[in-house]
Simulated assay, not measured.
Amino acid sequence: TLALVVTGCASTNGSSVASISHTSGNWWDRYIVYYISQFILWIASLVRDSYGWAIIIFTIIVRIILLPLNAISIKSMAKQQKVQPQMDALRKKYPGKDVESRQKLQEETSKLYKEAGINPYTGCLPMLIQLPVMYALYQAIWRTPQLQNGRFLWMDLGRPDPYYIMPVLAAAFTFISTYISQMSTPQSSQNGMTKGMTYLMPLIIGVSAIGIQSAISLYWVISNLFQVV
Rank of each mutant, 00 (worst) to 15 (best):
G96P: 02
P95E: 06
I32C: 12
W142R: 15
Q227R: 15
Q103E: 15
L128F: 13
Q148E: 09
I32A: 14
I210D: 00
Q130G: 09
V6N: 02
L69D: 13
L169Q: 04
L69E: 11
G123V: 02
I141P: 00
Y94F: 08
T174S: 06
Q84G: 09
I222P: 02
M193N: 02
I20K: 08
G158N: 07
D161V: 04
P95N: 12
Q38F: 13
I72L: 13
K75S: 11
S189F: 10
N26E: 10
Q213S: 07
A171P: 07
T1R: 10
F173M: 07
S50E: 05
L157G: 03
V207F: 08
D29M: 05
I129Q: 12
R91W: 04
D29A: 03
Q182I: 15
R159Q: 14
M127A: 13
N26S: 01
A78M: 10
I205H: 03
W53F: 15
M134D: 13
D161A: 06
N224Y: 10
Y35M: 01
V62S: 03
H22Y: 12
F173V: 03
L218T: 00
L203N: 08
P68Q: 00
Q86W: 08
D156Q: 14
L112C: 05
I216W: 07
W142M: 15
S188K: 10
L125H: 02
P68F: 01
I180N: 09
S37A: 10
K114F: 03
Y163S: 13
Q187C: 09
S21C: 00
D49I: 09
Y113H: 06
R91P: 13
A18I: 11
S24H: 03
T198Y: 02
L147F: 03
W220I: 09
I32N: 05
V83D: 05
N149I: 11
L105A: 00
R151K: 08
E115N: 07
T198I: 04
G211E: 06
